[in-house]
Design a protein around this nucleic acid. Structure first.
Lengths: 205, 205
DNA sequence: CCACACTCTGACCAACCGGTCAAGATTTTT
DNA sequence: AAAAATCTTGACCGGTTGGTCAGAGTGTGG
């Protein structure tokens, strides 16, 4: 038996309701931002009353922080999966396509992240320093070694990473705008082809 | 003399205070979004009392709408300035550099726009349809004609425009993240060189 | 210097917000 | 089936928010 923390294993009801709350929080926070979202919105979306919601999470902030922490891990996974032994251009293009696919499948997560950063990352700054920064530094070193070996065109690794993030996440974060400008077209299929060409031309030595 | 509307010419005090309010509104809305911003914040930032602020603008929404409307015009100007008679690659690169420069000089305007779009463009959707869409359609036609003449690589014009917006505005909208990852470096100078290379390689036939 | 339009403010209001609480309903354990 | 643990809710609370209003202050043209 664990000592200090009670830490009973969660009930089925707990699992269901906590999951529903996080799902609802993602929906609402990703569109409204932290201050713009209300507990009533989240509770309604989750199919619970407000006091009941606060039975499962101690505060609005706790829901937000839980979502951001969960997000950080899955968000960075594709970057961790770059294979130093692989073919550099193909590895980076695989990363581009994975990021674009995440924009298609998890647009709300992308917007949650965007909202947090645009507003100055008040609740995420520690995560950026502790998790994102070292991982980016590693990746920069890897790309630099590829360039030194002449297997990649000479590009600034940091700005390369920024441009991949920017172009792929754009399809999730600005989907409203894109919807206006691309009515009816198959956005993501064309986007994949375009980004492939963009980064292939850039990176090929 | 104009008839229906009184439309006296604005006093010096009116000019000064309306300007101060819009400046303050830009500062606050661009970081907090519409719902996250409060009239007290804006009033304090503008150096006015809240009732006095509401003497110059009838509501919080009126300030926001005024900012968005003003923004739309200046935001699209660089796109209007593409010269059909110019050298295609150089014209588009000039557009890239102007957009990047706007991210450097007007980061708050960029974030104001980003906030509005991420949240589903509730107050801007009409502007997007009426102003942005026709201008983009024109530009797409221009780029397609350049491609048909063989003066530009075969790229999807719409996704080209998206990628220019995404990469340049990223430096304003995500400046918090970039600050963490680029401590001390001269971000914009390197960004200009990087984006020049990125789009030159893409666009050169 | 006076009349008049313009500018500004403190006090106030109703609606909304995040969060609490006591008590009742429901499920699980024994 | 009773006891215990878990779950749910209506009523409520203090603070905040967008907005109002009557009246006081101020600048200015005649």
């Amino acid at each position: 038996m664990t000592t200090t923390a009670p830490a009973r294993k969660p009930t089925r009801i707990q699992q269901r309701n906590r999951r529903a709350i996080l799902e609802a929080g993602l929906e609402v926070f990703s569109r409204q931002g932290f201050r713009g979202a209300t507990l009533d919105q989240i509770a309604t979306e989750a199919g619970l009353s407000k006091p009941n919601l606060l039975y499962y999470f101690p505060s609005k902030e706790a829901i937000h922080v839980t979502l951001l922490t969960q997000l950080m891990t899955t968000w960075l996974d594709p970057l961790r999966d770059l294979d130093p032994e692989g073919e550099p251009v193909e590895e980076l293009l695989r990363y581009v396509h994975r990021k674009l696919e995440m924009s298609r499948v998890f647009p709300r997560e992308s917007r949650l992240f965007a909202n947090e950063i645009v507003q100055g990352a008040p609740r995420m700054a520690p995560h950026l320093e502790a998790e994102l920064k070292p991982l980016v530094d590693e990746t920069v070193a890897l790309i630099e070694s590829w360039i030194a070996e002449g297997r990649l065109a000479r590009v600034d690794p940091r700005h390369l990473i920024f441009s991949i993030w920017a172009t792929t996440q754009h399809y999730a974060d600005f989907d409203t705008q894109i919807g206006v400008l691309m009515d009816g077209r198959d956005v993501h299929k064309d986007a994949a082809a375009f980004l492939d060409m963009l980064f292939r031309r850039l990176l090929t030595p």
